[in-house]
Design a protein around this nucleic acid. Sequence first.
RNA 1: UAAGUCGGUUGUGUGACUGCGGGGGACGGUUAUGCCGUUCAAUGAGGAAAGUCCGAGCUCCAUAGAGCAGGGUGCCAGAUAACGUCUGGUGAAGGUGACUUUAAGGAAAGUGCAACAGAAAACUACCGCCCGAAAGGGUAAGGAUGAAAAGGCGAGGUAAGAGCUCACCGCUCGGUUGGUAACAACUGAGGCUGUGUAAACCCCACCUGGAGCAAGAUAGGGAUGCGCUAGAAGAUUGCUCGUCAUGCGCAAACGCAAAACGUCGCUAGAGCCGAUUGGUGACAAUCGGCGUAGAUAAAUAGUCACACUAGACAGAACUCGGCUUAUAGACCGACUUACUUU
RNA 2: GCUGAUGUGGCACAGACGGUAGCGCACCGCCUUGGUAAGGCGGCGGUCACGGGUUCAAGUCCCGUCAUCAGCU
Length: 110
Amino acid sequence: MDLRLKKQSDFNEVFRKGKRSYSKNLALIYIKKSELKVGISVSKKHGNAVKRNKIKRLIRAAYYPFLEKLPNYHIVFLPKTGIDFSYNDLLDDIKYLLKKEKLIDEENFN
RNA sequence: UAAGUCGGUUGUGUGACUGCGGGGGACGGUUAUGCCGUUCAAUGAGGAAAGUCCGAGCUCCAUAGAGCAGGGUGCCAGAUAACGUCUGGUGAAGGUGACUUUAAGGAAAGUGCAACAGAAAACUACCGCCCGAAAGGGUAAGGAUGAAAAGGCGAGGUAAGAGCUCACCGCUCGGUUGGUAACAACUGAGGCUGUGUAAACCCCACCUGGAGCAAGAUAGGGAUGCGCUAGAAGAUUGCUCGUCAUGCGCAAACGCAAAACGUCGCUAGAGCCGAUUGGUGACAAUCGGCGUAGAUAAAUAGUCACACUAGACAGAACUCGGCUUAUAGACCGACUUACUUU
RNA sequence: GCUGAUGUGGCACAGACGGUAGCGCACCGCCUUGGUAAGGCGGCGGUCACGGGUUCAAGUCCCGUCAUCAGCU
C-alpha cells in the first residue's frame, strides 16, 4: 500500500483547504479524506538538492513509526527554513503536533 | 634544508539492529507467461552526478536533396565515431629556471571607424629650415598633441633636407639547405611604400537541415462538413529551386481499448580493469578478466559503538566523449633555483 | 530534464554604428505660503550583476560565472 501523497492536485487541495498547525521547526497541514496519504514539501530556500533530500529523509524516518496508527487524512509536512535539523528534534516535533491535533489517541503512543 | 614548477591517485572507514529502490531465486495463493503475499542472499549516486558550453549516438519531422543567406571553426602535423576536445611541434609574450600563457589566416580586394588633443589620424605640412626682392617654390632634421605621427640608429651628403648613398638592425621579394608542414638557418636583390582595428563589416579555407527522451512508440478506422487547390498546403529559423496525387490539412457523430501522471523507450556501452606490443605522445592493436543504479513528488536513512587527518564541494533522470565551474584534506612521482656538506 | 530571455542611481526605464552614462519619480537645500501640497531653482546619488579577454579606449564586442523570470508534460 502506497501511502505517499504524490499528485500536484492533491497537494494543492491540502494547501488550499487544509487545517494548519505549527511547532518550532515544522508546519503540519491536513485534511480529512477517505484514505491516508502523507507528503513532504521542502522549499528551494533550504539549499541545494543534497540538503533538501537530507531533510526529506529525516522527516520520512521520523514519521514512519506512527504511520500505521494514523487515521485517514491527507497530511503534508512543511519544514521551516533557516534551521539545522536533527532526527531527535523532528521526532519530538512530530509527536507534539500529532498529539496537539489529536490525530493519534493517547493510549496508542509508545 | 628552504622556496617553487608540473603530473597523477584518493574523496571518511568498520560493525550491529531497524528501514527504502530495482532486479533475481525459493515457497504459497490465483483461470493466468500475469498479479498478490512470504522469505533468502546479493546489489544500489559523483569526480565533478552540477553548468548545459561543444561533439556524437538514438528518435521524429511525408522527401532530407541543391543553391543563396545565416551560423561555427581558423599557425602546422597528428589522435578520435566526432568536436570548439586532446597530443606533438612552430612563432610570439612572461619567468634566473623547472615551466607557463597564447581565438596565432588575410589590413597590397573593398568599405567603415580612430572621441578629445593636435597643423595633420593617411594623397599631412601649422611653426620651423632653405632658395627668392616678392609672388612662389623646395623640404620633413627639430617642435608641441596623442594610444598611435610616416622604417630605427650612426656616418656621408646637401642651399636646406630627404634611403639621396652606405654599414648594422628591421621590412618586402627571390634562392639554397633542413623539415611531411608551420617554420628555421644561410644568402642575394630591392631601396622602403601603404599607422591601428577583422572578439567592425568583410575576403579566403573548411564544417553545417531542424527539433529534442517533456524526442518518440504503444491503433488507427471513420459517415459527414469546412478549407486548400499548384504563387496552395506541410510544426522543418529565412529566400529560391526541386520533390509530394492511391490528394492534403482541420473539425468530427460513431466505434475500439486494461489505459495515458500507465507501459515501452531505460540501460552491454565508440563499456570498465589488467598485461603485452607499436608510437615522443594523444592513442591504437592483441590477449585475459568483470557484469556494474534505473527511479518517476523520484530509492542510501535512523539509532548505537569504535577509529582517525574530525569528513570539502555536492545527489543519476536517455546514453556516451570533452570543456567549464565548485571542492576540506591525504598520498605518490618527476623536475628547477638558492644555500650547505661530500 | 529541455529551451529561451533579462540584469544600468532607492524605484521604473533610455543608451542602433565602441569615444566624458542619461530621463522621470523619490531624496536633500533654497524660493513661494500663515503652514502644507502643487509649482520654480539648485544639488546628492552608479565598480553599468560578477570575473577574464580583444582594443589606445568596453555599459556596448568575445568567453566564463551568478541571480531572476518565462515557455515545453
